[in-house]
């Protein structure tokens, strides 16, 4: 049961490593876009620190959104998707393995660079811990929910822009609770409740998104 799933995970991580340029594009976007903010809003530390949490979260969200097309597109084009559908394990589990590999080579990198970005935005020291924690809970949800949208629009022309339209409304709750968890903790109001909600959203999307994405993939194969 596990062998085919580990094979998917290993293959996708290996592909991500060999296509490092493409893989790192998301992180690069994250860092570069954020470095524009001190120029745009001015270097006043109090303003940067005030908007830091929100800006970092929005950029992380956009970065995940940008990377969604590499989740299914190439497998769809070269015929691998049919093989995934005929795998020795249900397609739903294959979706989960693909999302895991996608997050490990995308969302996880965002979590890892987030502390540096918190410094860039002149945020307080605790932010270097709190912000990555919220991203750690939030970005896998973004990948899972995004996998549905990306699967639904397989084969559509200009799919990228449509995926954004389809998926962004579903990202809003994650964004709201992600930012308010970070800010709550930083202002000493406590962000535990928001963190728990983020965790709950992750669990729900991990349980439901594979079914929705697998159904969308089967439709794309028809």
């Amino acid at each position: 049961m596990m062998r085919p799933l580990l094979a998917v995970l290993r293959r996708d991580l290996r592909l991500a490593r060999r296509r490092a340029g493409e893989t790192l594009l998301g992180v690069l976007f994250f860092v570069l876009a954020l470095s524009l903010f001190p120029f745009g809003v001015g270097p006043a530390p109090d303003i940067l620190a005030r908007i830091g949490g929100g800006v970092i979260w929005v950029l992380a969200l956009l970065s995940v959104l940008l990377s969604l097309d590499r989740l299914w597109q190439s497998d769809f084009e070269d015929g691998s998707l049919e093989q995934l559908a005929l795998a020795a394990v249900p397609l739903e589990l294959v979706v989960l393995a693909k999302c895991a590999a996608h997050w490990l080579s995308g969302g996880l990198l965002l979590v890892l660079v987030a502390p540096l970005l918190a410094v860039l935005m002149a945020m307080p020291a605790e932010a270097m811990l709190v912000l990555p924690l919220t991203l750690l809970l939030g970005t896998p949800t973004l990948t899972l929910v995004g996998s549905i949208g990306a699967a639904l629009l397989l084969g559509a022309r200009r799919g990228g822009a449509l995926v954004a339209l389809l998926v962004l409304p579903l990202y809003i709750p994650v964004l709201i609770f992600g930012v308010s968890a970070a800010e709550g903790a930083l202002m000493g109001l406590g962000g535990t409740a928001q963190l728990l909600i983020l965790g709950a959203m992750l669990l729900v999307s991990a349980a439901l998104a594979p079914f929705a994405a697998a159904a969308a993939l089967r439709l794309a194969l028809e």
Binding site: R14, L15, D78, G79, S80
Partner: peptide
């Protein structure tokens, strides 16, 4: 219980021939 070889060859361009074959084999059980 089936193999399907369609028009797409399901070969990742950045993996070697052996890696490609080993992956599809493990995927298919």
């Amino acid at each position: 219980r089936l193999h399907y070889v369609g028009h797409g060859n399901a070969i990742a361009t950045t993996l070697t021939a052996e890696e490609n074959l080993a992956f599809s084999t493990e995927l298919l059980g």
